[in-house]
Design a protein around this nucleic acid. Structure first.
Length: 216
DNA sequence: GCCAACGTTGGC
DNA sequence: GCCAACGTTGGC
């Protein structure tokens, strides 16, 4: 996600939907085609959860997990988040099962989340936010007039979910994708391995490495 | 604008 | 269940 939106198509961006559009982090939705049943996606749906299966394991008391959401700034930027009421937005528009699973089954209130600008020059992480409300059904999927409409999702049996994200603080210096690619400690980062996913997990070590880059 | 990496769809 | 065609994302 977070990618909120972009120009004309709905992307899934994120959040907000409010006045503007909603973008979503990631993918966009597609205009409704009718999908049918909904396969659970691939590499993330393996029995052991795939390479990022730990994201879904039970937590120890007070354990935090770290995430990254993407948004195209033309659709929904970090500044748009800051300008939102309570600097909080609903991260809607996620229409990818792997991203949905991280969002719905992995994220918990209080988890730190990096905010990444995709399709920007340069693509980079620009801020930190936090999960302020755990997953709930994405209302944009229920609205036939919304580009994120998906007839496979209903209130009784929702396919797509959102979380609420609240801004915490901008990075002192944005950390570009190019810089992340040059950083050894980030070589296994989900963002770099599956670049098209709008919601990805970040390890504590990766989180700290990125913050260190943002200060330097 | 190109293209790589994937997800989705649908025939078989 | 396989696979080819197609669509989307998003970096470059």
């Amino acid at each position: 996600m977070a990618a909120k939106k972009k120009p004309a198509k709905p992307k899934a961006r994120t959040t907000t939907k409010k006045p503007v559009k909603a973008k979503t982090p990631a993918k966009a939705k597609k205009p409704a085609k009718a999908k049918k049943a909904a396969p659970e996606a691939s590499q993330f749906a393996t029995a052991d959860g795939g390479p990022w299966g730990k994201c879904f394991l039970p937590r120890t008391n007070g354990e935090r997990r770290y995430w990254l959401v993407k948004s195209e700034p033309e659709t929904f930027s970090w500044n748009d988040l800051l300008a939102s009421p309570s600097q909080t937005t609903r991260w809607d528009g996620v229409r990818n099962f792997a991203a949905r699973n991280f969002l719905r089954d992995g994220m918990r209130v209080g988890d730190p989340v990096f905010f990444y600008h995709s399709s920007s020059e340069p693509p980079c992480i620009v801020g930190q936010c936090a999960v302020s409300h755990a997953a709930y059904p994405d209302p944009t999927a229920f609205d036939p007039a919304h580009p994120g409409f998906d007839e496979s999702s209903s209130p009784a049996n929702p396919t797509w979910f959102v979380v609420d994200l609240r801004a915490v603080e901008p990075l002192a210096h944005p950390v570009t994708l190019a810089r992340m690619k040059q950083t050894k400690a980030l070589s296994r980062m989900a963002l770099l391995r599956i670049g098209r996913l709008s919601v990805t997990p970040v390890t504590k070590a990766e989180w700290d490495a990125i913050l260190a880059l943002s200060r330097g």
